[in-house]
Design a protein around this nucleic acid. Structure first.
Lengths: 158, 158
DNA sequence: ACTTATTATTAGATTATCTAACAATTAGAT
DNA sequence: ATCTAATTGTTAGATAATCTAATAATAAGT
């Protein structure tokens, strides 16, 4: 355990990277066990925010509308999702997560959230506020990088 | 800004989730711009840890050996990766990230790391240590959850 | 009203992945 | 020392996911 600040910063940086790597692998594992591919996972994760239209899903997970149609067919057939006509615009289809998705959340992610809350409870308010600020700062940096990246470089040829 | 501890813990939990979501979307964006699919990204990200055999890659990113062969064909053709025979075991093929992969890291992830380090430098050592501990705790929880999940549930039928 | 834009779907082509079989090599068992 | 069994990466053909393009229905703009 080195107490040099620069070393500490370096270690913290790699720790953050490993953590996010681990999170991604966890989601993958869940997908593997429940038979959900990357796009299915992204779609369900998006629907946690609330019902969405098919085209909103397409934009969010970067799939063509056609691919989303078949994706939703699959998810609907397995009970993860329900389609309902939008009453205000009859072109639209509102997609909502359904029973199977809620069961998955209850079985996998809810216990994780509970354990996480218990862990955070062992820190005091001042400490939690520090963590909160670091996260906010990190997100700002990443958001800015994403903006620049999206502006500068549109899809590169392969 | 509510100062109630339980509220703070709840907000921090969702902030962490959003952060990891944002990270995943960032990687996706990079993939979109550079024409790299999820498996390609996973493979390259794994190779950052050093050269690996084809079968190690297959295990890591949960692809069959056959799929890895074609995946590596693609990546090798575009200069992201190089295959070399393993001198100690002539069945094996060592895979190593190559020029295109390093350029991608330099162009995208290195600036992010620099900005992140500068951000962390604005905190003092005591604060950084707190963040470090929270990350370590979070990773332990997730690791445990992953172990239990992997043991309890092997692939569910679709 | 008429034209244009948006939304979701279908049909057919393309791409990624899988299953199964295989060839080369190494490890293990007497 | 051979022989058998296990490991490693590849190929060939089948399956699945995604894309492109065309279509039908609806909404918005003029």
């Amino acid at each position: 355990m080195s107490s040099d600040k620069q070393t500490l910063i370096g270690e913290l940086g790699t720790a953050i990277m490993r953590w996010q790597d681990q999170t991604q692998k966890f989601d993958e594992l869940v997908g593997h066990i429940y038979g959900l591919g990357p796009s299915e996972r992204l779609c369900l994760s998006f629907l946690v925010q609330g019902p969405q239209t098919a085209s909103a899903i397409a934009r969010e997970i970067r799939l063509t509308p056609a691919a989303v149609t078949t994706l939703l067919d699959r998810l609907e057939q397995r009970g993860y999702v329900r389609r309902r006509p939008d009453p205000t615009d009859r072109r639209k289809v509102m997609v909502k997560s359904a029973a199977a998705a809620l069961e998955l959340v209850e079985a996998v992610y809810a216990p994780l959230a509970i354990a996480g809350a218990a862990m955070l409870d062992r820190y005091d308010v001042a400490e939690l506020n520090i963590v909160s600020r670091v996260i906010r700062d990190s997100m700002e940096i990443q958001e800015k990088a994403a903006r620049e990246l999206a502006e500068r470089g549109e899809p590169r040829s392969r």
